[in-house]
Design a protein around this nucleic acid. Structure first.
Length: 372
DNA sequence: AATTCGTGGTG
DNA sequence: TCACCAAGAAT
């Protein structure tokens, strides 16, 4: 379909961005030159996948201090990489980023869109965004912001992602005309601060050119996406200490929280009678802490934490006893960080359900920790 | 091609 | 409280 030429339509974005852009630690001072540090651009773009700028900034700063270049990242251990990523989410990104750094340390930084797409963790958006910001290539980067801005300016109805190829063709000349790095960031900045899901049209530099606004459709374009279904779960999360340390579930290579350590857990079980007496029979002293609801991308988990102390240290399949002094440095997701921070908090007596969970964990080990 | 990957902000 | 969703990619 024929779109109004983007070069003229989007021209107001360039001066708007030069005047209004937010400071970000990865942004180059000179938007008309290649970026002095393509690795920094890569790190920022991977962290920004499905993650807001304000959340990323402190992670980016710490990351660049510890891993200032691809060589430093390539040489790091998996625990250290995940330690710096812990809490940011989508942990596969951390593993992919280190794999990309190893490829770069060996063969140099790819300077074409096709070469960037070969790096693990870089898809159509990220490869184009790096190419434009690091190397000034006129490669349109279509993220959620860009799709929303384009859909509104052009009054595209339906899911704008259907028009990805046409929109890239539409945007490319505007990138070349106004500067690939500048216009790429300007479109996203507009989407993040003005052309938001609930738009602030009064302060938009494209107000006069916006077809959706002209028709009063700016609130309905683009349409909301159907939600993925969320499964419900209820688990006991157990911090068990013995003379050998804490009993922990070592990192898995795939699935939820891959690359992170976690406390062993068991699905909530039916109530047992006489928990306290049975527990002392095991040489086990335990209490339960206040629970909470942990939300993941497609899972809602009611967490019932337990802190227990055992006189002996039995083996448990797939679980490890970790010395107490190592506990603070292990990479963990938010759920497990929360329990780690509450190990000294007061609690209530162990319930029958809690005892059943501890028995399941000690008897079955990692097999009591089902993949979701 | 539909699912599966975290977490925090916002209205 | 809750829906929505954020500089998406891999499978």
């Amino acid at each position: 379909m024929p779109f109004a030429p983007a070069t003229a339509l989007l021209a107001p974005l360039a001066p708007w961005f030069d005047a209004r852009r937010r400071p970000m630690p990865w942004r180059a001072g000179d938007l008309d030159a290649p970026h002095p540090d393509p690795y920094a651009v890569l790190v920022s773009e991977i962290m920004l996948q499905q993650t807001q700028v304000a959340t990323v900034i402190p992670y980016f700063t710490r990351w660049m201090e510890r891993f200032p270049d691809a060589e430093a990242l390539a040489a790091a251990t998996e625990d250290e990489v995940h330690g710096l990523w812990a809490g940011l989410g989508y942990y596969r990104r951390a593993r992919n980023l280190q794999a990309a750094a190893r490829a770069i340390a060996g063969a140099g930084f790819p300077r074409t869109l096709e070469g960037l797409l070969e790096l693990p963790g870089l898809g159509p958006y990220t490869a184009a965004a790096v190419a434009a910001q690091a190397f000034q290539l006129p490669t349109p980067a279509l993220d959620g912001n860009a799709f929303r801005v384009a859909a509104r300016v052009l009054a595209l109805e339906g899911d704008p992602r259907r028009h990805a190829a046409a929109l890239r063709d539409w945007l490319a000349p505007a990138l070349a005309a106004h500067g690939p790095s500048r216009l790429t960031q300007a479109v996203m900045e507009l989407g993040a601060t003005v052309c938001t899901p609930v738009p602030r049209c009064a302060s938009c530099p494209l107000l006069g050119a916006c077809a959706a606004r002209a028709r009063g459709l700016q609130e309905r374009i683009p349409p909301v996406q159907p939600r993925a279904k969320v499964t419900e779960a209820e688990i006991h999360l157990a911090a068990i200490r013995s003379p050998r340390g804490w009993l922990l579930c070592p990192p898995a290579s795939r699935g939820l929280l891959a690359g992170l350590w976690s406390w062993p857990r068991a699905e909530a079980a039916p109530e047992l009678e006489g928990a306290a007496e049975a527990a002392s029979g095991y040489g086990l002293e335990a209490r339960e802490l206040p629970g909470w609801v942990q939300v993941y991308s497609h899972r809602r988990e009611t967490v019932r934490p337990i802190v227990a102390r055992m006189a002996s240290a039995p083996g448990a399949q797939g679980l490890e006893w970790v010395p107490g002094e190592r506990l603070p440095e292990l990479p963990m997701g938010r759920r497990d960080q929360k329990l780690r921070a509450a190990l000294d908090a007061p609690g209530t007596p162990l319930t029958g359900a809690g005892l059943a969970a501890l028995r399941t964990i000690l008897d079955e080990g990692v097999s009591a920790n089902p993949r979701s």
